[in-house]
Design a protein around this nucleic acid. Structure first.
Lengths: 174, 174
DNA sequence: TATTGTTATACTCTATAACTATA
DNA sequence: TATAGTTATAGAGTATAACAATA
């Protein structure tokens, strides 16, 4: 399919060529990183776009609801901020939105009255389930066609990378 | 190292546990995706943060300069928007900033007077080189410790994923 | 007619930091 | 003193869409 076949306006042909800035052939860590980043960004952008178009929502909102759905007993906002890699203040903001829409609720704790536990409301859970089904389908569309061998390799190399990266990132540098 | 050992304020302990929302053990496409996303986001956030702290700049600005540095003859803004996966309007905005700071310049084309070609100025190239050196060092910190075998597996599985994902994304769906 | 780039708008996310209430 | 969460602020990035100039 050629570029010319696509509608032209507000449609980006996704070439994701971050890698284009590294000399051909060279197998550097940088090149590997750019390939990783290209793949992820490509898919992530598409998911953001579909969430917005089909469910009028955003990725952070979706991820927050996903975390809550996986923890029916609720989660502290601090835990959410760690899992989702954003600051406390951001969680407050997203929670405010979702609570106003009746999708999540804060439950004050008696044993520690500083904290509240966040849960999906039944309506929130219902909406989440619809989105999650579509989301999982999308992901299958992206990753499904990979051959089994590659999936396993990806999973295991990423699992090493995850450990290594955590170490790097959480070691107060300098 | 324990959580308690970290400074507490405006410091997020990076656990990147997006994966925590998928049942243990299950080897699904979704789980693989979340692992991919966690790793990338973790590293990407850290890079954004270091770019801001050490060079007072942002990832999109850095990436735009990287693209230009790799193409000394300059690039059309449309090409940039495709490579960087953002819309034309965004490229205009970032370019405006960088041009005002004297780091890039627009060169009007004679043979096609709609388009301009974007180039780094000498000062832009100089600044970019400093940032690129640090950036590459950071990436080596993250990916370097991976064993060779894993790097090769990653590179080849990602290269398949990149193709597959491009297809998925650029095929007008439904 | 299609393409390149600009402009305008509105919104979300984000970091940062000061703050409160509680532990 | 440390922690959980809130508030306020300012800024960047983003999509979207209408637009001008040119091809």
């Amino acid at each position: 399919m050629k570029i010319q076949d696509f509608p032209t306006n507000s449609f980006i042909v996704k070439t994701a060529d971050l890698e284009a800035r590294v000399p051909e052939g060279e197998q550097s860590d940088l090149r590997l990183w750019l390939r990783l980043l290209s793949c992820t960004t490509l898919i992530e952008n598409e998911i953001r776009s579909r969430l917005r178009r089909e469910f009028k929502t955003t990725l952070p909102r979706f991820e927050l609801m996903a975390q809550l759905s996986a923890h029916p007993d609720g989660l502290m906002m601090t835990t959410l901020s760690r899992n989702m890699l954003v600051t406390n203040g951001n969680i407050t903001g997203i929670t405010d939105q979702l609570e106003k829409e009746g999708l999540v609720e804060r439950q004050r704790q008696n044993h520690d009255r500083r904290s509240s536990v966040l849960k999906l409301t039944p309506e929130g859970e219902k909406q989440y389930q619809r989105m999650a089904a579509a989301h999982e389908e999308w992901i299958r569309g992206f990753l499904g066609p990979l051959c089994e061998a590659n999936k396993e390799m990806l999973a295991s190399s990423l699992s090493e990378l995850k450990m290594v990266a955590h170490l790097q990132v959480n070691t107060p540098a300098q």
